[in-house]
């Protein structure tokens, strides 16, 4: 909670600072404006909820929960359109736009074999396991990123900047697919899917980035930035796993207007 508040406080301070400086600029300087296309990817650190319907497979001398030896990953890629307006001193930029994000998470076995056991049904007489190789899940989100960029150095061919941003995203589509070890078990696809929850309908993330822009006069500006890190400030579940934070890369191309 403190971490989240700290992030929001820093974000607000940057905003107010940027707005303040923006307001103090002399009228004779002309503000730069850009419109651009962005694309990027992120790898998220995630953990597996303690599912009671997945059979544990931990080392005999190990410890922990039954899901410790499951492998999970959540990765995202996105494309978007953004506009940027800079302060007259050309040191701060405010960026916003629309972003389409595809999140792909999976759950599989991490050691010893290429499947895990999932409890399908259980009654007084019998227990039925299914062998699962992989559960793969996709979610599509539409989001609004809001970013503040600070360029401490004067314009040059390669210009360093730091950035803080937040993104508010809304789920528009999701799909889940189960890869069975025995293909004949496909008939249980829906039963397995129904054991998992739906992905989060909305989420909010904040991120910090460092980047370089390549400037040519009268030509598009190319920006390459490393997101280190991004963090979810709302609970975020892909439906399979819970994501915590991540790192990534983003490339965006801006045209002045």
């Amino acid at each position: 909670m403190f971490k989240t508040l700290k992030f929001i406080t820093i974000f607000l301070c940057f905003s107010l600072w940027g707005i303040g400086i923006y307001g103090q600029e002399k009228a004779e300087k002309k503000r730069k404006k850009f419109i651009g296309f962005e694309s990027g990817f992120e790898f998220m650190t995630s953990d597996v909820p303690d599912y009671t319907f997945i059979r544990g497979d931990i080392d005999y001398f190990g410890s922990g929960s039954a899901t410790d030896y499951l492998d999970c990953l959540n990765r995202e890629w996105y494309v978007g359109l953004k506009t940027e307006i800079r302060t007259k001193n050309d040191k701060f930029g405010l960026l916003t736009g629309f972003r389409y994000t595809r999140s792909n998470s999976y759950l599989s076995k991490s050691a010893d074999s290429d499947y895990f056991y999932l409890l399908n049904t259980q009654d007084a007489q019998a227990t039925e396991f299914l062998r699962i190789k992989l559960i793969d899940q996709y979610s599509d989100y539409i989001g609004i990123p809001v970013e503040i960029r600070y360029m401490p150095f004067r314009p040059r061919l390669f210009r360093l900047y730091v950035e803080i941003g937040a993104e508010f995203s809304y789920l528009i589509n999701s799909d889940i697919n189960v890869d069975f070890y025995n293909e004949a078990m496909e008939i249980y696809q829906d039963d397995v899917i129904n054991k998992f929850t739906e992905p989060s309908t909305t989420y909010t993330s904040v991120y910090f980035a460092i980047g370089w822009n390549l400037n040519w006069k009268y030509k598009p500006v190319i920006n390459l930035e490393a997101i280190i890190p991004s963090a979810f400030i709302s609970d975020y579940s892909t439906g399979l796993i819970n994501s915590i934070d991540g790192i990534g890369l983003q490339l965006n191309v801006q045209i002045p207007f």
Partner: peptide, 28 residues
């Protein structure tokens, strides 16, 4: 956090094909 992610990427790049059966002991 970066280290965390790198570990996950490394795990992601590995695949295991050994057999596994229910005779194994799982101590929780």
């Amino acid at each position: 956090k970066i280290f965390h992610v790198l570990i996950i990427i490394t795990i992601f790049s590995l695949s295991c094909e050994e057999e596994y059966d229910l005779e194994k002991s799982v101590l929780i």
